[in-house]
């Protein structure tokens, strides 16, 4: 841990009416200028973690940034910017007034019009938020957060309420916008995580289960949960008796690493379903071993027909083995 990093080590218990108490217990460190993506399913506690870092929930443990202890600091004194999933723009203020909202509390701010131009929405400055599309609102919300030159930016699923084309455009812009900005970014979307993250922290049931580069998390998941959540096939070894060594209980392999090639096949499988996915096809294979059947997904640019039997090879260096579940 360097003194420049945003260090978080919190334990917090949340109780809401009508739900089971939920505990978040997480330790992470966001390095200066880095984008750390917290990736986890709905209900994993990632938003609660982000809000705790922002200062909205009581907790045990410590939060510090650049060596400054923020544990007891109220949200407005932490020097963070916050971007919400549902934009949370002030409906009674114009776009320009929204972006300028924090300027009276900060000495060093950027001119709203300059930021709006940078985000490609300068023509909206005099409108009110409710007249804007989702993508436009999120650009304004980003401008509002960036205007105060936040020491770190906290983003709570900023893309998940947007339609797919808008999301893709804004995601591409975020790659540039977040460059060099210390950011803690929460999402359940692995594509977004992989596109934006310098490092990824996978969250499950209020705990961080793996922290690493996107490469490490996607290619070397530490558990079947991480493998499944990052889009890998997870199968019991017994279903793959043809390639198993009998020692692992579960194995994982990403669909893009499954090779459909009769010449080098380890075993054969029946094609159950073929679904177009952008430029390629997702091929769902039924793998049987006489005991039961399980599904294995692969990608293919030249897919076989449904019902065909194909030869399958699982390159062993691409297979992750889990001995305990």
């Amino acid at each position: 841990m360097t003194s420049d990093s945003l260090d978080v080590d919190v334990r917090a218990r949340f109780t809401a009416e009508g739900t089971e108490p939920f505990t978040v217990d997480a330790e992470l460190s966001v390095r200066e200028g880095e984008t750390l993506v917290v990736l986890g399913p709905s209900g994993s506690g990632k938003t609660l973690l982000l809000e705790t870092v922002a200062g909205f929930h009581a907790h045990e443990g410590h939060i510090s940034h650049r060596g400054r202890d923020l544990t007891g600091t109220p949200p407005e004194k932490r020097g963070f910017g916050f971007v919400f999933q549902d934009y949370a723009l002030f409906p009674h203020l114009t776009v320009r007034e929204n972006v300028a909202f924090g300027s009276r509390y900060h000495d060093d701010t950027t001119d709203p019009d300059e930021l709006l131009a940078e985000l490609g929405v300068s023509d909206l400055a005099d409108r009110t938020p409710k007249t804007l599309s989702g993508g436009e609102q999120q650009r304004v919300a980003l401008a509002r957060s960036l205007a105060i030159h936040p020491e770190a930016l906290l983003l709570d699923e900023p893309l998940s309420a947007l339609d797919v084309p808008t999301r893709q455009t804004l995601r591409a812009d975020l790659v540039d916008l977040l460059d060099g900005v210390t950011s803690l970014y929460v999402t359940h979307n692995r594509t977004t995580a992989r596109a934006l993250a310098d490092r990824i922290a996978v969250m499950h049931d209020g705990q961080l289960v793996q922290v690493g580069t996107p490469e490490e998390v996607f290619e070397s998941p530490v558990s079947p949960f991480v493998a499944r959540f990052t889009g890998a096939n997870v199968l019991s070894e017994s279903a793959l008796s043809a390639v198993g060594d009998g020692e692992a209980e579960m194995v994982a392999i990403r669909p893009e690493h499954v090779v459909l090639d009769p010449a080098t096949a380890d075993f054969e499988a029946a094609v159950e379903r073929v679904v177009r996915e952008d430029a390629t096809f997702r091929v769902s294979l039924s793998v049987g071993n006489g005991v039961g059947e399980t599904t294995l997904d692969a990608f293919s640019d030249d897919p076989p027909a449904v019902g065909d039997t194909v030869g399958v090879r699982l390159p062993s260096r691409r297979v992750t083995r889990f001995t305990t579940t």
């Binding site: 922002a54 949200p75 916050f82 549902d86 949370a88 723009l89 009276r104 509390y105 509002r144 105060i148």
Partner: peptide, 12 residues
């Protein structure tokens, strides 16, 4: 969340 947003951007 609007009050959250105000706090997060510096408002007491």
């Amino acid at each position: 969340r609007l009050e959250f947003a105000a706090r997060a951007h510096g408002a007491s």
